[in-house]
């Protein structure tokens, strides 16, 4: 299976990655190789193999429902580009 430039640009957009136009053919070739590998694996009969959700053979540990975090807003906001009235400010996202 091979991806073309359009596929690469679409994937980049969905992942919000900015890529250089000159790099697109290279990415297309590399991603196509990965898909080829998947294609090879597809040939293996996996009818009786349950899908793996996680490589570790373990189950999720749960934590008790207790508030353990204190307010560190001022600390966190020192690295925010812009804040006001306790809010993080970002470019307008309204539709």
């Amino acid at each position: 299976m091979s991806l073309d430039a359009n596929d690469v640009n679409k994937i980049a957009h969905l992942a919000r990655l900015r890529i250089e136009e000159a790099d697109v053919p290279g990415y297309a070739a590399q991603l196509s190789e990965i898909l080829d590998l998947v294609e090879q694996m597809n040939a293996v009969d996996t009818r009786d193999v349950p899908p793996m959700a996680h490589p570790l053979d373990a189950v999720q540990r749960l934590r008790p429902d207790v508030v353990s975090e204190t307010d560190q807003r001022d600390h966190f906001q020192t690295i925010a580009p812009q804040t006001e009235a306790g809010l993080y400010l970002v470019p307008k996202v309204i539709e």
């Binding site: 009235a85 400010l89 470019p91 307008k92 309204i94």
Partner: peptide
């Protein structure tokens, strides 16, 4: 979306 000079405030 109000009051932040064209920016969006996030809580």
């Amino acid at each position: 979306h109000e009051d932040f000079q064209g920016l969006t405030g996030i809580d």
